[in-house]
Amino acid sequence: MSVSIDFGGDSLAGWIQHKSGISVQRCYQCGKCSAGCPASSDMDFAPSVLLRLLQLQNAESDQKVLSSYSIWLCLTCHTCSARCPMEVDLPKVMDVLRAESLRHKLVNKRAKDIVAFHKSFIDTIRNFGRLWEVGLVADYKLRTRHFWQDVVVAPVMLKKGKLSLIPLFHKKFVSRIFSGLRNREERA
């Protein structure tokens, strides 16, 4: 299956360069990023393989990248970029790839939970201005229907006074940011 995805008439690599100034052609495939990546062994494509796919600049590989699980497993720990001999800022590339994956509705099925978590997180900020952990977890569970996850940890946290059942509302501090972003989206 191959769909053509539009990146303003460019390849995904060209789009990345346009958005972040990073050229994936700098990568000479030494694999140092994959060697040090803490999540690499759980990824469908190791970081250096992702870059290789991008270097090919064809629709099929671009789609593989955007529908990969790897881009959602990246922990943004910066181990790769700290050691990259060619100074490729891979975490920044990952940020662009995730945005494109969402935009083109190509999110990997296995990554649904991870995306749901981040969405719940942002929802919590939108609603409360700050992170309210109980709210975040409830939101996440509703999204993913993982009702039984962490049933062991949560009561202990509660007992240790690590969780607040009642949120504090600081929504007003961020409402302008979110409404501004929404307006922007609508305009675009």
């Binding site: 943004t76 900020i125 501090f173 501004g180 972003l181």
Partner: peptide, 25 residues
């Protein structure tokens, strides 16, 4: 005073502008 969440590890995963706006505030 009146501080908000910085967006932590989630904002930049989904929305680059949001990930800058929250800390900027």
């Amino acid at each position: 005073e009146g501080w908000n969440c910085c967006g932590a590890s989630s904002a930049h995963q989904l929305d680059h502008t949001l990930s800058l706006a929250l800390p900027a505030r």
